[in-house]
Write a protein that binds this DNA or RNA. Structure first.
Lengths: 232, 232
DNA sequence: TCGATGCTTCGGTTACGATCGAAGTATGAA
DNA sequence: TTCATACTTCGATCGTAACCGAAGCATCGA
């Protein structure tokens, strides 16, 4: 009778709280073991194992055996994008798990969103790039301008190599903490990778939070100025 | 402990088969009554009513009273986008409810996708616009070029009026039947609206299928030529 | 005023799936 | 070999939520 893709199947996979916690944890972009995921999800290893099988069978996760460990990661960036969109929608509908207050300031300031920067700092990047005319924001669609290509090139990023047909270069990713968009896509990833490489920032272990060094912060603020208040 | 939007809540809402059927039915862009939705979902009115309350409370649906009828529709295009993405992902993961064979040829040829054209015809629009340089396809991000603006303008569509900050002008929407992208966004809607207005095509009642008239088909194929085989 | 239609609420049943402990398998270390 | 770690499978329990029929409201037409 009905024809079409089975959206309920995938939605059900994401819909279980334990599985949603696992997927959210994997948004850090790193592969995690079954034991680690069981802990973050708050269930026993037996339960986690069952969940992970389902997620893998559903095509949301990939598994990599390494010795006696099993590392799980999101299947690809499309899954990550879907989760981001879901989080963005949930935020605008007021579905927050806890108070949206300044619970974890570090997370709200700078955190990883699959493979790029989110939070206050992430939003600032996009705002700044739009202000200087590097990115054209047509509604929710982002385009890197000629000016932007030059700017990015000056930073030592080769646009050609990060431009693939499998992923958008620029992507507006709605931020649940800021309720504004930050920069995703392969450019978002490249910029973040470079900050790590330059030693401006480091990932906090066991968390999605990103810790900027003192110098990293000032360099960051200088590189991405914004018109409004500089109350960073 | 955990902070962030509750993605599980929204995913659970979509994850129930009956609710997923309702949401899919509403992708036709029309508002439907509770009774109609109950039928398409295959449940009694009592059950449907409970589902609809949940969907509304979750912010996915809006309700409009009209006499003794209650019309339900998707809350906004963001919800529609999410459902589209979900369907696209489900399709690439091979989660089809039935054989992906030519079950309903009419649906595969031309059907409505929230408010724009999908299926073989929908894919053709985007392919053709890219070929003639009207749309620049940078990865998965679409931009209307100057050439494109002129072309659309010649068709009698005023780009200024359909350009809103709330919705992208062009959006690549992965097609579950074609496994290729078709054109969504406000331009996709505008083009489709015009085809209906010109009498090229009509919606089938009780279905997402679009029936093109004989003349409408030839006009359509002429307006959107593609290099490859014209085996439409 | 009365009946018909469209929908919601209530109460009770049922089924599915999330969960855990315990036992089983695989890999690595000693 | 033997033990420890990492994970899976099994079997049983339990809670939630989907479901329906019947009764209750609300709105419309006559």
């Amino acid at each position: 009778m009905k024809e079409g893709p089975d959206i309920a199947r995938i939605a059900t996979l994401i819909g279980d709280p334990a599985r949603a916690n696992m997927l959210t944890a994997l948004m850090c972009g790193q592969a995690l073991t079954a034991t680690e995921l069981a802990q973050t999800a708050g269930v026993t290893l037996a339960t986690a194992s069952a969940h992970l099988s389902k997620l893998e069978e559903g095509g949301l996760l990939t598994q990599r055996k390494q010795g006696r460990h099993r590392y799980f990661a999101l299947a690809d960036h499309r899954v990550a994008s879907l989760l981001e969109d879901l989080a963005g929608l949930a935020a605008t509908r007021g579905h927050l798990r806890h108070r949206p207050g300044p619970k974890d300031p570090a997370l709200r300031r700078a955190r990883i969103c699959y493979d790029h920067l989110a939070g206050d700092f992430g939003v600032r990047i996009l705002d700044s790039l739009i202000e200087r005319g590097a990115i054209l924001s047509e509604d929710e669609t982002l385009t890197l301008t000629t000016t932007g290509r030059q700017f990015v090139c000056d930073m030592g990023i080769d646009v050609e190599t990060i431009e693939t047909p499998r992923r958008p270069l620029c992507r507006a990713c709605l931020d649940w903490s800021e309720r504004r968009s930050h920069l995703g896509g392969s450019l978002g990833k490249a910029l973040f990778d470079q900050m790590l490489a330059k030693g401006w920032a480091k990932r906090e272990p066991e968390s999605r939070a990103i810790r900027f060094t003192r110098e990293g912060t000032s360099r960051f603020l200088a590189l991405f100025p914004v018109q409004d208040v500089d109350a960073a």
